[in-house]
Computed example of a mutant assay.
Amino acid sequence: MTITQRTPVSAWSRWPIWTIHAAWLWSAIYAVLGVFWALGGTGFPFGAGDVNAEGQGTLLAEATAPVTGAVMAALGAAGVVVGWAMSKRAERPRAVLLLFGWGMAVLLVLVLPEIRALTVVLFPLVFLMLDKMDWPMVNFLVLMAGGFLWAGATLAYQRASRSACAHCGRRAEGGRGRAEAWLLRRGRTLTYVAAAAPWGYALVRLAWVLDLPLGVPPEFLRQLESANGGAGAKGMELVLVGMCAAGSVLTVGLVRRWGEVWPGWVPGLAGRPVPVAFPVASAGLAAVGVTAVGLSWARGLPEFVANGLTVEIEGHRMGPIFGLPIPSFLVWGVSLGLSALAYYYRRAGHCVHCRTAPTESTME
């Protein structure tokens, strides 16, 4: 008698299945919460219920429970239907299901969180933000988690519904689509763009540290220092500059050998392969936070352009360079996300689920 040994299947390896069910359940929960809040239930986390919203974004600042709750209930109910259809691998209406799934992912991850999305990027320093970790803040994190679930569910459905492996996206005959091949060809260029983009923000902040009123009047810098204890304001600006510089350097690792094999100065890991998931997840989360902030800032861009590339803030007239961080963050976030995806495709080997490998036409 032949005994067949089965390879243990981890929960993570089953993500194409459980993300769809989790997105379905998440939508059902928020549909119920939407009805509860629309009918006057307590704990509404937006609008007047978000007491720490100042400086975090204005998109939901005027939200009211009856209207917003009803919208949440409708989207949640639609999510239940779409999630059920995805779980059944419904062939039609495929375009509608994909549009809803990706739309929910973008809405929940990149649009609604606004400045709060940086919490995901700065999660290792979350202890510095405990005073802001109230129910509305936790709710935004749950919303973002739901967005990630919808992204995973929609990606799995998109692949499976075109007869490709839900895990790697390859078809049985091998190879990838045009988008993946394009990323592999342009990955290096995108990476260098992502490494350069944060300096559009960092150089402005560094100038302020050096008391150079770049894009702002001198009075603004004096007001900023007096409101933040002088040295404290400059210290925070230096931290922001340092984070941009560190992000720029680490981004280059996506196309360098030390981004694939741990360098000699890393104790205990030198010479070992860098797990693909580590740089992909790190760069991906950073891209999410940066893009969300850029989109939040970009809502003021039309007014900024209409006023001749100037804007008045607290009585101070800001110049054109003041708006440089807006396109800087948008370019940074998008190019970083694409660079991380190109890195993943470049290092992906045989898929243990479908047993296929990339073809030569998709490699650099």
Rank of each mutant, 00 (worst) to 15 (best):
V82A: 14
A28C: 09
I29K: 01
T64Q: 09
M86F: 00
Y30Q: 12
V9H: 12
G57A: 05
A11E: 10
R6N: 14
W26E: 07
A22G: 01
W24N: 08
A85L: 10
I20G: 01
A53K: 13
W84Y: 12
A31I: 05
G76L: 05
A78Y: 06
N52S: 09
G76P: 05
G40R: 09
L60H: 09
A63D: 05
F44N: 03
W26F: 15
S27V: 03
A78F: 06
M72S: 11
T58P: 00
L39I: 04
G40W: 03
L33G: 04
W24K: 07
G34K: 09
W26Q: 07
A38M: 11
P45D: 10
W24Y: 12
A48N: 14
D50I: 05
W37L: 10
N52G: 01
G79P: 01
W24P: 00
N52C: 00
V35M: 09
G83L: 01
F36T: 07
I20K: 07
I20V: 14
V35R: 01
G34N: 10
L59G: 00
A70W: 10
W37H: 11
G41A: 00
S27T: 08
A31S: 14
L39G: 03
V9T: 15
I29W: 06
I20M: 09
A61C: 01
V51F: 07
A48C: 11
A85D: 00
L33H: 04
G49T: 08
I17P: 00
V67M: 11
L75G: 08
I20E: 00
T68I: 13
A11H: 12
A48T: 14
H21R: 15
V81Q: 04
L59M: 11
I20P: 00
L75V: 15
G55T: 03
W18M: 05
F44T: 02
